[in-house]
């Protein structure tokens, strides 16, 4: 790890000020991607602004018909939350399946969303649930937020504060985890809202998380695993690597989508 300056934010305003005060500062949330990346010297920020004690970024609430999760909420907190379990149980299951118990005690939803790892679980849930990402400056719909591999709509100095999920009628996420890393080799999130179905796929796409229009149309007509029979992902859009080639991933997209619907 290269040397950096450590700054501890006490409030959201303080974090924004400290972030702006250094040209190459990065935010530190749970650190479970950033610190390993820094150890490998793939990232070398000049300063880290630690969000660990910013109370405004924590907490889980129900607000009207939306489940609102603070950016610094850990995966374990989301998985164990009675509010998450009662409003969107599939989201609690997703959070409880990220990494391993120790990772879930540190990793945060805000960190995961800001990093937009193409194999991360949360981005698929945000897309399928039509979530809104609130920052210290504005609100961004998930569809406009995720911009490809590790790329998001976040601007310099922008800090995610919370994620708001409209509560759906049905939601589930099914993933085929890489047995070593627990990242999704393929993960599919399916959501049913009044009159619409949304399907989002992580781990598979060449350009990161994506929605699957044909599956959404089929599930819009009939919400059943059988409705997805014969609908595949296009292998030319899929990642091909040592863990699985494009054809395998394309096949898994169909399998995981059917499993997700069957789980609702």
């Amino acid at each position: 790890m290269y040397a950096f300056e450590y700054l501890r934010a006490e409030s959201l305003a303080d974090a924004a000020k400290q972030l702006a005060s250094k040209p190459d500062a990065k935010l530190l949330a749970g650190g479970h991607t950033l610190l390993p990346t820094m150890k490998l010297r793939l990232a070398s920020p000049g300063a880290l602004v630690d969000l660990g004690r910013v109370a405004e970024l924590k907490g889980i609430d129900k607000s009207g018909n939306a489940l609102v999760i603070g950016a610094m909420t850990t995966h374990a907190e989301a998985a164990d939350s009675a509010v998450v379990k009662s409003s969107i149980p599939g989201l609690a299951t997703l959070a409880g399946g990220i990494g391993d118990p120790h990772v879930r005690h540190r990793g945060t939803i805000g960190g995961s969303v800001a990093n937009n790892d193409p194999s991360a679980d949360y981005p698929a849930a945000l897309m399928a649930l039509d979530a809104t990402i609130a920052t210290n400056r504005r609100e961004i719909k998930a569809d406009a937020f995720f911009k490809g591999l590790f790329a998001t709509a976040l601007q310099d100095g922008e800090i995610i504060t919370r994620i708001s999920f409209p509560v759906p009628t049905k939601f589930a996420y099914a993933k085929f985890p890489n047995p070593a890393s627990r990242y999704a080799l393929v993960g599919v999130a399916v959501a049913q809202t009044a009159g619409a179905a949304r399907v989002a796929v992580t781990g598979a796409g060449n350009n990161g998380v994506f929605r699957h229009a044909a599956m959404e149309a089929a599930l819009g007509k009939a919400w059943s695993a059988a409705a997805l029979n014969g609908i595949a992902a296009d292998a030319k859009d899929m990642v091909s690597d040592i863990h699985g080639d494009a054809a395998y991933r394309a096949h898994l997209v169909g399998v995981m989508a059917r499993r997700a619907v069957a789980a609702t």
Binding site: Y6, L28, G31, H32, L35, P36, K39, L48, D50, A76, D100, P101, H102, V103, H105, R106, A180, S181
Partner: peptide, 22 residues
């Protein structure tokens, strides 16, 4: 690299990987 868990300690009562925590 936060995979093996040999470094697990309890931080405020919860198991964490101390190799991936400042």
């Amino acid at each position: 690299t936060s995979q093996c868990g040999a470094c697990v300690v309890h931080l405020d009562g919860r198991a964490v990987k101390s190799c991936t925590t400042l």
